[in-house]
Design a binder for these strands. Sequence first.
DNA 1: ACAAAAGTGTTTATAATACACCCATGA
DNA 2: TCATGGGTGTATTATAAACACTTTTGT
Lengths: 256, 256
Amino acid sequence: MNQSSPISANKLDTSEWMPGLSIDCVIIGFDLGKLHILVTKMLDSDIRSLPGGFIRKDEHMDQAACRILEERSGLTLPYLQQFYTFGDVDRRKATPVLEQWKTNSHMREMVSWLEQRFISTGYLSLVDMRESKPSPDALSETCSWIPLDELPELLFDHRRIVKKALEHIQNQMNYMPVGKSLLPDKFTMKDYQLLYESILGRKLDRSNFQKKMLRLGFLKRHEKMRGGGSHKAPYLYSFHTDTYNKLLEKGIGYMS
Amino acid sequence: MNQSSPISANKLDTSEWMPGLSIDCVIIGFDLGKLHILVTKMLDSDIRSLPGGFIRKDEHMDQAACRILEERSGLTLPYLQQFYTFGDVDRRKATPVLEQWKTNSHMREMVSWLEQRFISTGYLSLVDMRESKPSPDALSETCSWIPLDELPELLFDHRRIVKKALEHIQNQMNYMPVGKSLLPDKFTMKDYQLLYESILGRKLDRSNFQKKMLRLGFLKRHEKMRGGGSHKAPYLYSFHTDTYNKLLEKGIGYMS
DNA sequence: ACAAAAGTGTTTATAATACACCCATGA
DNA sequence: TCATGGGTGTATTATAAACACTTTTGT
């Protein structure tokens, strides 16, 4: 359960929070060759929602996003970046959930806070799923990873927010530490390629991908990984952090 | 003078406007081989400011930006796009101007509105300077074009906002109609190249630029332009709008 | 005739792409 | 030994970059 939010417990202290402004986080992970996204399941409802929250009056917006991310994922120091601000008037269409919550007297105040018009800034985070400890907030039952290709219906315009976030990764991936953020410390070249393929949404040439990445010189080669299947064992790799970060500034070109 | 703003005339109707949220517009033009930017000069002060404003409670944020741009520049249907949302706590440091305005009793209410914390979304617009009719708002004396390389001190964090906007054009120019938006209907290849050079901040090879742009096939060649100097007369070009827009989606690569 | 700027052509270097080949492994 | 996936090499193509050549103009 969440401790710091205008809608925590029963008391609503609107004075501490920026009105009309919210944050929605698109938290991306990668496992088993698929991108995953962290979503919560709303109380008394089957509908899922992006982790989100509000901004304290004395808090930097980035800080707020960082706080929200930490509360939901248990991760600190993630890669986190705003990608778009959603300013539609009717972003939040009337939803059955809110109506249902209204019947619960001690939630009425929260609902009236939630029913104001919000302009929301979307933040994108890339994290190592295996390091995360998802936990729900005051308005949700569960918080869990879902493969992107199995994304269910989402609250409000959250589906659009996710779409925009994915476009943002596609456009900016050369300047983002996608590998370092999403992969475990050691990984195979196949993993790395699958990551690129799932972001770009298309197949890449195995041979060229390998050569390109090795030539860039930010990968350290380790021992081979035993016991996958009946085939040659792949090497494990890790990132040479300094070189990697230096190259990121110029952009790590992908190809094929 | 401006007619629709929470700070127009003397009356302040905070109920109609989103509190804590503002818009700042970086309006870019191009003339005489240089990028220009539209800035206002504050009342009772030498300090300049980006054209900005607020968002009506029943208005899409993009709409608000469009309205502000039209009020300042006289232009409708411009190329306009949000590029970043600035969420620092102390974006608006105490400024001499505000203190000065406080001494004027009928402006005191406006100042108290202005003194709240604002999170501001930056919008970038590319316009044809020659078509614009700049006009100041309720808080400014003048509104005029200034060459980017002569940019004076600006209000609050507006300098940072401009910097971020320029980085955004540099990164995204392949997907923006920089030529069509910033150049007049007919232009020389030299103009076009100077535009690219001033955005990228570096010289390009004349020969390669010309070939590249012609090969892309979105330029219509017109009559030659007489009377420049003692040299070969250059052709005039215009954009073949359909082809241009189609290519923009894929990105118009620049080079050299 | 000359300088200056415009238009076109050529050469070289670099990178993307396709795909061929050999190697290691477990069934 | 065979199928499978991993690692490396090579040929082809496309693009960027550098720069040489020619043309047109006013003085």
